[in-house]
Amino acid sequence: MMNELDALEDKVAQIVDLCHSLRAKNAELQQRLAAAEAMRAALISRMDAARMQIEQLAAQLPDLSDNEESV
């Protein structure tokens, strides 16, 4: 009977250790996810700014179709 209780105690201790390990891993993954989401938002912002700059530069280019008719 004592051996069974000792074995059960060991298994419960293993489960508790596993639970603590999984909670720590979950916290780490949540931090990594938050960092990845922040990086994604920053990259989207930079892409939007670059797109706006390209659109502004494209708007400043002369219209070549008008020049081809007069040539």
Rank of each mutant, 00 (worst) to 15 (best):
residue 45 S to R: 08
residue 14 Q to W: 10
residue 18 L to E: 14
residue 31 Q to W: 07
residue 53 Q to R: 04
residue 24 A to V: 10
residue 55 E to V: 05
residue 7 A to K: 10
residue 2 M to C: 08
residue 31 Q to E: 10
residue 4 E to V: 03
residue 12 V to D: 04
residue 62 P to K: 09
residue 27 A to T: 12
residue 45 S to L: 06
residue 35 A to V: 13
residue 63 D to V: 00
residue 69 E to N: 04
residue 25 K to M: 08
residue 5 L to A: 07
residue 58 A to Y: 14
residue 52 M to E: 15
residue 45 S to P: 03
residue 54 I to Q: 04
residue 44 I to S: 11
residue 51 R to F: 09
residue 46 R to T: 05
residue 7 A to E: 12
residue 55 E to W: 02
residue 62 P to G: 00
residue 34 A to K: 07
residue 41 A to S: 07
residue 44 I to P: 01
residue 67 N to L: 13
residue 53 Q to E: 13
residue 16 V to C: 05
residue 58 A to R: 06
residue 23 R to N: 15
residue 23 R to Q: 14
residue 54 I to K: 04
residue 69 E to S: 03
residue 36 A to C: 09
residue 71 V to L: 12
residue 71 V to G: 06
residue 51 R to P: 00
residue 66 D to I: 09
residue 67 N to T: 10
residue 54 I to T: 12
residue 24 A to I: 06
residue 57 L to Y: 05
residue 55 E to T: 07
residue 29 L to P: 03
residue 27 A to Q: 14
residue 28 E to I: 11
residue 69 E to M: 10
residue 63 D to W: 00
residue 44 I to R: 08
residue 67 N to W: 04
residue 25 K to G: 01
residue 4 E to M: 02
residue 71 V to H: 06
residue 52 M to S: 10
residue 41 A to K: 05
residue 65 S to Y: 02
residue 19 C to M: 12
residue 66 D to E: 14
residue 14 Q to K: 13
residue 32 R to P: 02
residue 33 L to M: 07
residue 29 L to H: 10
residue 34 A to L: 08
